[in-house]
Design a protein around this nucleic acid. Sequence first.
DNA 1: CCGGACGCCTGTCGGC
DNA 2: TGCCGACAGGCGTCCG
Length: 271
Amino acid sequence: MPELPEVETTLRGIAPHLRGACIDRLLVRERRLRWPIPADTERRVRGQRILGLDRRGKYLLLELERGTILIHLGMSGSLRIRAADSPPAKHDHLDLCFQGGQCLRLRDPRRFGVFLWTPEPPAEHPLLAHLGPEPLEPGFDGDYLYARARDRRCAVKPFIMDAGLVVGVGNIYANESLFRAGIHPARACNRIGRERYWRLAAAIRAVLTSAIEQGGTSLRDFVRDDGSRGYFSLSLQVYGRAGEPCPGCSAPIRLRRIGQRSSFYCPRCQT
DNA sequence: CCGGACGCCTGTCGGC
DNA sequence: TGCCGACAGGCGTCCG
C-alpha cells in the first residue's frame, strides 16, 4: 500500500501528537508482523520520551531518548491517533500509549509491516543500511540514474522500484512516473539516454511531490491519521486504468506484468 | 553480483 | 448465494 507519499502523509499527521510525548506503555496484541516483535520491546520503550520523528524511504523513525522505533507499513498498514481506552478493531495489532490518554494505533491486516526498536543509529540498522538516496533530496537526478544504469540490464520499471537505487518509489508511482517521462516500463534500463533519465528523475520528483500535497493515494485501506483518505487517486493517469483512453493520445492503456508487478502504460506515448 | 521467482498474510473482486 | 482463483500499494530470501 503505502509508498513514500503515504508514509510522508502519515508522518506529518502523527508528528504533532507524538513529538515530546512520553511513552506510558506499549500494548502488543499481535507480535507476528513481518518480523516478530521481540518480547523485550515493551520494556525497552516504556517511560521514554519521543524526541523527534523522521522518515527514511518508507520507514518511519521515532527517535527516543535511548534508541529508535522503526515502523514500516508494508502493504496494508496504517497508523492512527486514538484514545488509549477506545476499543481496538480487527487487525489493530498494537498501541503505543502516551501519558495523557492518547495512543498511536497500528492496523495491518496483512501483517507485512514492521515495528522494531533498535539501540543503534537507524542508518546502521540492516534494514536501512543499504537504502539508496531520497528522491526529493539533492543528489537524485538524471546523471545519478544514468550512471547507476550502466552496469544493470533489468527493465527500467523494476530498476526504479529497487530501494537500493532510490527509496520510496513503489508500483503506483513507478507507473505514473514512467508515463509522465514517456518511457516504456519494459525498456532495458541500460538503453535509456542521459537526457531521458533527467526527464524521469524530474517526473519521479513531480509525481511524489504532487501526491504528498494531495495526502497520498487511497485505493482501499490507506487512511490518514485522522481517518480521512488521500485523493491523489484522482490524479492517476495510468495506474488501474487498463483499457481506458490515454490522457495524451487516447490509445487504450495497456496492462502487462513486468517483474511480477502489474504495469500500466500507453503503447504510443511510452517508448 | 545480478535478475527472476517465491513466500509471507488477509481481504476483495470477478467469474462460474 | 457460494466457491475458487487471481490479485493487491512491499520486500527479504533463495536459486541459477
